[in-house]
């Protein structure tokens, strides 16, 4: 899993939970909340979908790492790699 693939995973989830958002121009370095209308309920769903679809656990204390696509990639990519290694 590359960082770009990881960003796509997050974007795919957002596309499903917020189909009314336009995701064609999301800037990876900008906080998601600042460019999309996402509230705490939506962030809970990003976490829940990561668990449901990819068995990735994000503890509440780490929610801050999901702020932007870049920070998501930094935080999640190692988790995906570790999970793949466990196979």
């Amino acid at each position: 899993m590359t960082k770009d693939e990881c960003k796509q995973v997050v974007l795919d989830i957002i596309a499903d939970i917020a189909p009314d958002e336009d995701l064609s121009n999301v800037k990876p370095e900008v906080r998601l909340r600042d460019q999309l209308q996402l509230d705490s309920m939506d962030f809970l769903d990003i976490v829940m979908e990561l668990r449901k679809r990819h068995s990735i656990e994000v503890p509440e204390a780490d929610y801050q790492h999901l702020a932007s696509l870049d920070s998501c990639a930094e935080y999640l990519t190692p988790k995906f790699i570790a999970l793949a290694a466990k196979g």
Partner: peptide, 12 residues
């Protein structure tokens, strides 16, 4: 129109 109860409900 976003951020209202109807929109939240549809998303959730």
């Amino acid at each position: 129109v976003k951020g209202t109860p109807l929109t939240k409900l549809l998303r959730q």
